[in-house]
Computed example of a mutant assay.
Amino acid sequence: MSSPQTITANIAALRQRIVQSASDTGRDPAEITLLAVSKTRSAEEVAVALDAGLTQIGENYLQEAVDKQAALQGRNACWHFIGPIQSNKTREIASHFDWVHSVDREKIARRLSEQRPEGKPPLKICLQVNISREDSKSGVLPEDALTLAKQITALPALQLRGLMAIPAASDDPAEQRSAFAALRALRDTLQQALPDQTLDTLSMGMSGDMDAAIAEGSTLIRIGTALFGPRPAKAE
């Protein structure tokens, strides 16, 4: 487990990196939100991030997230589900999260809408797009995104906000930017086709490619290791 001092210093460094990357590409850093990806991290580590002023927390694993939410009840946190979604988990996801980034089919979207508890605001949704067309990756294909987007906008308990992608891994900044540019262009196409919607979110960029993502318009940077430090090795 990383020390509070390490996590706090990492957050400060990431904030400065966001400011620098935004400045380098003529963007306002206020447009870019740092999403703390806290899978496998303790509630205590998440609390340190909240103490440092972060409010957006991303989780991949449902039960782990629910346990942390209980431990941190009353704290100012907005919870994002960013992992794969199984049909039998949609009720709890709809109940416990503010955002879901990984919707890639109509069945899941419909279940989330039907199972969103009454009295809660609409669940904010990002479509996960398989922008690099990898067989191993989840996500709707770009050419099918508009159909899915229209289906989601018809569901009463959901609010479509934008797109998410995890492009093919690359160390080449030009390749990184190309994938992110494709996602931004797709978002712009969907916005034009759906003028009544506000598609203001591009969830793209992680520790290794956040600068390229910012250059291409990311509004949510999903950061885990660079924020919380290396994950502890699994016991043999």
Rank of each mutant, 00 (worst) to 15 (best):
A22R: 01
R75L: 13
M1N: 07
S3Q: 03
L158E: 13
E175G: 01
I125L: 09
D28C: 13
P84F: 00
P121E: 06
P167N: 07
A174K: 12
F228D: 02
K124P: 03
G26Q: 06
P142M: 08
L14I: 12
V19W: 00
E175P: 03
S132I: 09
W79S: 09
N60Q: 03
K89D: 06
P117L: 06
D144I: 03
L62S: 06
E106Y: 02
A49W: 06
W79G: 04
Q128Y: 05
V48K: 08
A65P: 04
A77L: 11
Q115M: 06
E114Y: 02
L227A: 00
R187C: 14
A226D: 15
L163G: 12
G224Q: 07
H101A: 05
W99T: 11
K234T: 11
K137L: 07
A168K: 14
M204S: 10
M210I: 02
S2C: 04
L141E: 14
P121W: 04
T55I: 11
G58H: 13
E216Y: 11
A70K: 15
R177M: 06
A168M: 06
G139M: 08
E216F: 10
L35Q: 06
R17W: 00
D200K: 13
H96I: 03
R116W: 09
A215L: 02
L112P: 06
Q56L: 15
M204L: 08
